[in-house]
Design a protein around this nucleic acid. Structure first.
Length: 711
DNA sequence: GAGTTTGAAACT
DNA sequence: CAGTTTCAAACTC
């Protein structure tokens, strides 16, 4: 009884544990990333395919993708759940593990009775390896494997997962799960250690990392048709959730530090889950332009369990939600074009406009009606609360939004990427000055068809240009948390690598967005996307005579030596200061170089997946250092910008000093024209704000996440 | 506000 | 894939 049954631990049992984490459920309900664990497990991690760029940045459409995923997940999950319920805890876990173990071992000869005897030591080895990553608490301690084992069994057997329930249900379910777990622990005489909170914490991390991986499987299954599109509802929700994730963890960390073993998911004084408070943070620290698209929370609202504060938060999300629905395809980060000086988003304007005009796109009446209902309630209907600063801010947003500039197309019918609205996945609305505009709901079919054609040419045409920036921001911030996160960081980074790999396959026209091609503007005018974005040019740029005041292609800032440049620099800087942005001179498109994980050292549950991604990692190539253009072998030139942050982070989650494998994401050595696509902020871990700005997006005032590192 | 310049997008 | 054309935003006056 006290001896852990090693056969009860399988990677998949950990996976189920991951799925059970509340943040996983929360993100799962929001993110377009699909979970395909069952499928992936069935494939023994062998069929993991690269994500197509389109699948990463699809045209989010109206279709509810949850159903398809539900269908996708049903078999295993239901079996797992049934297994758990039709027997007691250990039996259920045993059955689950037996089943899952079979899957993971391809139902090989290990099923034989004699094989089982030999299997257990191996399993134990694998288990211990896995638990290296999963057993660690935030303070770096290892949780005894039997603790994990017990917890895992409890969770696997005792919970019927339903990843498609609304978030609140999930939170409640999770909290109920905690209670159940506590009860079980009482029964079993197991004292819940402080590490258990950390374990959950780690599980949450793995959830995120896992989701990123699992996404690829499901994409793989849908590449032969358009269906994949329906499985993605928008990249923004993904990003917003990614962004939210660390913030959640930030809160959790505080809880953990306060010694609350269940603090990871404790509720606020108001009784609202801490998660909801994250939206306050988000709405505060994230730019107005980056509105959280959080369709998954719709139900939260409908449950009417919103206090005043939350109501505001939800309204922010819903604005975006509506906008996503409105054009018939989703809100991309690109949908933030031409952020005017006021810093407002076209989103809110569009929504308002749409709402005010009663312009209700097909299939979305319900949503807009909801929005129409709510905006007055939030911004105007609640007269009593107008004096609240938050309300005022919302009012300002709305008013600013009305003044937002829109497109002015004359000949493209707003059906080409020339049109910012179209490129952003937005319908043109009243403030637009376009002529012969077809980018309207009544021409939805035309819009979608045109969009499809454009995407067929360039799968990244509508991709958010800054997704990876944000990912890297998250990664950079995660770096500050704890060495504990190393594995998961790498996991996420690997997904970035995936994206990079796909983008490098795309035509130059798909990639140059991250690198200008200026010839005559010297990258000193807003013609230059880099300059406009407030970042320096990079080696990926093909500009000539670059004098970008934010950083020249060849390095440095001209502002000190060039009067015009200085003027331009100051001018742009002054504009940016009006956005409360922080631009660091000399920051270019930083290399997105991260240590490549030595996947052979990763937990076996992941190594298979990552092996599919990074065969080069398997080879443990000593220094995968591919710099652009020069093919330089100078390791210093390819030293990852994040390396300093990653120093000391073990690649396998163990306290070993990692060998940095300099793997520059941003270049393809086989393609001289390869363009850097991602940019990361010049992240200063000591800075309280990190800023990106692309042509389409300003992300500003993102506070650094609290350090989880031991003092 | 009209005209010019510019570079991305689209086309060939 | 390179060269050309089209386009709309940025810019200038």
């Amino acid at each position: 009884m006290n001896t852990p049954d090693k056969t009860q631990i399988t990677p998949t049992s950990n996976l189920s544990k991951f799925e059970d984490s509340p943040v996983f459920k929360y993100i799962d309900s929001l993110s377009p990333i699909e979970l395909a664990k069952s499928r992936q497990t069935d494939n023994g991690f062998s069929s993991l395919a690269f994500l197509s760029p389109s699948s990463l940045f699809p045209s989010p459409q109206i279709t509810c993708h949850r159903e398809s995923r539900h269908h996708f997940l049903e078999p295993l999950n239901s079996r797992v759940a049934r297994s758990g319920h039709e027997s007691n805890t250990s039996e259920g876990a045993s059955k689950v593990d037996e089943h899952l173990g079979c899957l993971n071992n391809d139902c090989s000869s290990k099923e034989t009775s004699s094989g089982q005897v030999d299997e257990q030591p191996n399993l134990a080895t694998d288990l211990s390896r896995t638990l290296k990553y999963d057993c660690r608490s935030p303070d770096g301690d290892f949780e005894p494997c039997n603790e994990i084992l017990k917890k895992t069994n409890v969770e696997v057997a005792g919970q019927e997962r339903s990843p498609f329930q609304c978030n609140r249900d999930k939170w409640e379910e999770r909290q109920q799960s905690f209670q159940n777990e506590r009860d079980l622990r009482k029964i079993c005489g197991i004292k819940r250690s402080e590490e258990s909170a950390g374990s959950d914490w780690v599980a949450v991390l793995s959830d995120v990392a896992d989701m990123l991986t699992m996404k690829s499987s499901i994409i793989h299954e849908n590449t032969d048709g358009q269906d994949w599109r329906t499985t993605n509802s928008g990249t923004t929700s993904f990003i917003s959730n990614i962004l939210q994730f660390p913030l959640d963890k930030a809160n959790n960390s505080e809880n953990a530090e306060s010694g609350d073993p269940s603090g990871s998911f404790k509720q606020s004084e108001s009784g609202e889950p801490v998660m909801d408070q994250m939206h306050v943070i988000l709405s505060t620290c994230l730019p107005d332009e980056l509105v959280v698209n959080d369709s998954g929370l719709k139900k939260d609202d409908k449950e009417g369990n919103c206090n005043q504060s939350n109501h505001q938060q939800f309204s922010i999300r819903r604005r975006c939600l509506v906008f996503e629905k409105s054009p018939g395809f989703g809100l991309h980060l690109n949908s933030l074009p031409n952020i005017p000086k006021g810093g407002q988003s076209p989103l809110s304007k569009s929504i308002l406009s749409s709402t005010n005009r009663g312009e209700v796109p097909d299939d979305n009446k319900g949503v807009v009606t909801e929005n129409s209902y709510e905006i007055p309630a939030t911004f105007g209907g609640d007269e009593a609360d107008h004096n609240s600063p938050e309300k005022k801010r919302h009012f300002e947003l709305v008013e600013e939004s009305v003044a937002c500039k829109r497109c002015n197309c004359k000949r493209s019918k707003c059906l080409k990427l020339y049109c910012d609205c179209f490129a952003a996945g937005l319908y043109c609305i009243e403030p637009c000055s376009c002529q012969d505009c077809f980018n309207k709901p009544i021409h939805e079919n035309v819009v979608l068809e045109t969009r499809r054609q454009i995407e067929s040419r360039n799968p990244l045409a509508f991709a958010p240009k800054v997704l990876c920036c944000i990912l890297m921001m998250v990664l950079s911030s995660l770096n500050e948390w704890s060495l504990l996160l190393a594995f998961y960081l790498n996991h996420i980074k690997n997904m970035v690598l995936l994206v990079q790999g796909e983008i490098n396959k795309t035509p130059a026209s798909a990639r140059h967005k991250r690198g200008c091609n200026c010839k005559r503007s010297s990258c000193l005018k807003k013609y230059c996307e880099c300059f406009q974005a407030g970042v320096g040019c990079s080696l990926s740029c093909r500009c000539e005579g670059c004098k970008n005041s934010f950083g020249r292609k060849d390095g440095g800032c001209e502002s000190e030596s060039d009067g015009d440049n200085l003027e331009a620099c100051e001018k742009n800087a002054s504009e940016k200061s009006s956005h409360d942005t922080v631009i660091t001179k000399g920051q270019g498109h930083p290399d997105l170089s991260v240590p490549s994980p030595d996947i052979s050292r990763l937990p076996f549950a992941y190594s298979g997946k990552l092996a599919a991604f990074f065969p080069h990692s398997i080879k443990s190539s000593p220094q995968l250092c591919s710099t652009q253009e020069q093919g330089s072998s100078d390791t210093s030139s390819c030293k990852p910008k994040l390396e300093s942050n990653l120093d000391g982070i073990p690649e396998n989650g163990t306290p070993e000093i990692p060998k940095h494998k300099c793997f520059t994401l941003v270049s393809n050595p086989t393609s001289p024209n390869c363009k850097r696509v991602f940019s990361t902020p010049n992240h200063d871990s000591t800075s309280s704000s990190t800023t990106w700005r692309s042509r389409k997006l300003i992300l500003r005032s993102v506070p650094s996440f609290p350090s989880f590192s031991p003092p």
